[in-house]
Design a protein around this nucleic acid. Structure first.
Lengths: 261, 261
DNA sequence: GTCAGAAGTTGCATAAAGTGGAACTATATT
DNA sequence: AATATAGTTCCACTTTATGCAACTTCTGAC
């Protein structure tokens, strides 16, 4: 079934930054023989997993995928509760929010909730972020053991923004802090000038975990407002944790310490 | 590469109505041997194309797909222009709008634009609609020749809402009407009480086609408002048609005739 | 126009898969 | 505990994938 793995690798190349691929793109990105890439992409085309853009040689994902995200979203009660919760917080504070899941070392937004403020972070659904370099990612990583995290990053961290942990040691320290206080804050993770507040919550019965977050322009949101956002985010998350019976949940916004990265 | 076709068939089973699949679900839906389904799904799991929900036997699409929709959306200038256009119309009229593409006999929404009215159609991104039974679908089918349409429906139409064409002949007649006036109106296509206005526009250079539509509660929107919506929708589409050089474009909202289905 | 260079496809022998039936194991149901 | 249901594994057989190299387009330059 190596062909499925290869097909999956090709699909993984797509993102909001990479919207089309040619045969040679795949060859250089994945290092597979040209003949294989050509035949595989032809087969994927025939299966509807890829489609050519017009009659060019450029490929994009098949339209089959357009409704799969919806299936993912509604397959999980946790995601739905989290989406409702973030929507409420977003609505009251006016800032944009997300529900995200971790996929290995990457984070992906599952739902977005655009803010209503004049100056708000524009939502970028479908953007992939490094887990270690984002508040959402770290809150989820903090739910794992240090050993698991080390195994995940045994090839080292790809260095992200300067404000994020640059070494595995720094990351583990940060995770310990998150385990203690339950939430995380990031600066400039998704883009310069953007801060994020994130809390993770799990559904142990289903073995699922998501991170709720609110993003805002760091320069114009003071510590009082941050505390308020954090409080309501944690309150919502706590409610979900009670429903799912998430014993590991911890989010006590005592004070906003450590605004670094 | 039959395995890719099977994998694709499995992925096609997912929708907002079917969010999880077990091995036997696949066996009964696709009629493949149980052993195959089991092994294939295992392989898809390992490739990240599927994931189990918790540690149950139920499967959902892999999170890999969460960001693929974004790639599709931004791979096409036509889609982006259409999305902007529908967003503008939606904003001025307050009703929900969509940009949709056709995938065989199905329609899938690519972008959604929630309305602002108190009574608005709630957006259902990821829902699959029958092309022949929706205004968006028919505007795109009208761009094809009768022969192509006949070939597409050589196994007959799956009958949709009573207001939609029930026979191939009725469909072809309807398409002829659309070719003449350029737009289409549907009633109760997506859900009872919901009407839709749709216009198709193409990018001949890229070989792409999308349908722009506005959906609204049929009972409260009079013919004057419908005409206004149609006029602005057509104006936006016409602008796109000029840019792309879509010679086949036709949308002259002379009057709102034929409000049937 | 035609000629290089790149991009993409195809042929072929080898190697590695997928295939379906049946047996087996695990998981609910009573 | 017994039975039904769901899921996995085994195995011989068949089909398909693989990688190299040769071949065919496709582009852009002169």
């Amino acid at each position: 079934m190596t062909i499925l793995a290869n097909a999956s690798e090709i699909l993984r190349c797509f993102s909001s930054d990479c919207t089309e691929l040619t045969v040679t793109d795949v060859v250089t990105r994945l290092g597979m023989p040209k003949s294989n890439a050509s035949r595989l992409m032809k087969a994927m085309r025939e299966a509807g997993l890829l489609e050519t853009i017009g009659d060019s040689k450029r490929h994009r994902p098949g339209r089959l995928f357009l409704n799969i995200t919806a299936a993912f979203r509604s397959s999980s009660l946790l995601i739905q509760m989290a989406a409702d919760a973030v929507a409420r917080v977003s609505q009251t504070c006016g800032h944009t929010g997300y529900v995200s899941v971790r996929d290995g070392r990457d984070m992906m937004a599952v739902t977005d909730h655009p803010g209503s403020n004049a100056l708000r972070v524009v939502s970028t659904l479908g953007r992939r972020l490094s887990a270690h370099a984002s508040a959402t990612g770290r809150t989820l990583l903090a739910r794992e053991t240090d050993a698991t995290v080390c195994a995940l990053y045994d090839h080292g961290l790809m260095t992200g923004p300067s404000a994020s942990p640059q070494t595995l040691e720094a990351l583990l320290q940060r995770l310990a802090q998150i385990r203690a206080r339950g939430y995380d804050i990031s600066s400039d993770a998704a883009a310069p000038g953007i801060d994020a507040l994130a809390v993770a919550v799990a559904d142990p019965a289903q073995g699922e975990m998501v991170s709720l977050c609110i993003v805002f322009p760091g320069a114009v949101v003071g510590s009082a407002e941050r505390s308020a956002i954090l409080a309501s985010l944690c309150a919502e998350a706590a409610e979900i944790a009670t429903i799912t019976g998430d014993a590991a949940f911890r989010a006590e916004p005592l004070s906003l310490t450590g605004t670094d990265a």
